[in-house]
Nucleic acid binder design. Sequence first.
DNA 1: TTGTAATCCAACATTATGTCTATTATAATG
DNA 2: CATTATAATAGACATAATGTTGGATTACAA
Lengths: 188, 188
Amino acid sequence: MKVEKVDRRVKYTKYMLKEALVALIREQHISTISVKALCEKADINRSTFYVHYSDPYDLLNQIKNEVLANVMLYLKEQDQDPTGSNFQLTTILEYAKKNSELFETLFSENCDYVFQDDILELSQIISSQYNMDMDETAKKYLKEFGTSGCISVFERWLQDGAKESPEYISEFLKKALQGGIMCFKNPE
Amino acid sequence: MKVEKVDRRVKYTKYMLKEALVALIREQHISTISVKALCEKADINRSTFYVHYSDPYDLLNQIKNEVLANVMLYLKEQDQDPTGSNFQLTTILEYAKKNSELFETLFSENCDYVFQDDILELSQIISSQYNMDMDETAKKYLKEFGTSGCISVFERWLQDGAKESPEYISEFLKKALQGGIMCFKNPE
DNA sequence: TTGTAATCCAACATTATGTCTATTATAATG
DNA sequence: CATTATAATAGACATAATGTTGGATTACAA
């Protein structure tokens, strides 16, 4: 892994643009945010923006990748394998709670569901932990039901200030998933 | 109820614009559709568009309202009370299947989730049919889990060509909802 | 047929976009 | 510290969509 040294000016520019975009997303939908307004908020020249990003969506995607990378890093710090299937959901929720303001913003409607897609993958890892011995159609829809349910509860939790503990939400989701599964399982 | 007679020209204009918008939404996200392109597709003058709508989102909203009105009408035709809590979910699914191409489009990502919000209300009516005797927090999250799960399964069903019968999906959703609820219910 | 009203057409100022170049400011390096 | 490299800026530019307007044209309803 090569350690590319980044010019401090570049760091500054990108930092300001990211902060500005997140701030704007708190107020309006990403699709309505113009490059002009964004650069004014960040106090960065518009031409400079185009050196680094093609449009606000591009910037948002880069923010997303960083956030996800940080989540993975956190999982590793807690000695958990992000690719394995038996990591603790609680740990992710923990991290989200620590950064709940940012997460709430990024999971809001104003982000055009840029983040949901990736969380979907995570959710699928989680749901794959369960033994789902049932017919294929039921399995398909149950996965759909479970993953979207999980994401939605997660978002609601953030929206309401992440008051409950990560453990509570984690337990809730496990129970809810199990509950649905039990109803469709074939007798063994 | 006054019967306002509508000029045939107006009918024509609105019809063409609606068709054009739906066609465009099949291909691209609503936020990227310009008034110019829309009017060209519909072969309607751009100034005329502004007489009737403020922007493509406005038009989409009016389409939404019509579709929902038609659903309600269909429910009434089937002698079901749309405001009551014990109407058949199957009937709605039936109607969606009959118009599955349109519904698939309108529930796609390209519509910026304009339709999801209203379906949420419907879903809440459905979930209110259940006796949820449990603590308030669990109830809150379980409702979230259930409604979003239902919507998601519904969308998936449409996306995959609505192959299963309305009865199958209806039964599936009922079972899945019940399953989650059973896990959290207080002993009576 | 006739008055009404909806559509069309052309023009307009305004605004954001994306690109480019010369200039200035800052960082990295010896 | 002085020099070199490069990032950011300011400004200009063509392009394109927006939203509005006034007047000509056309289709409708009665």
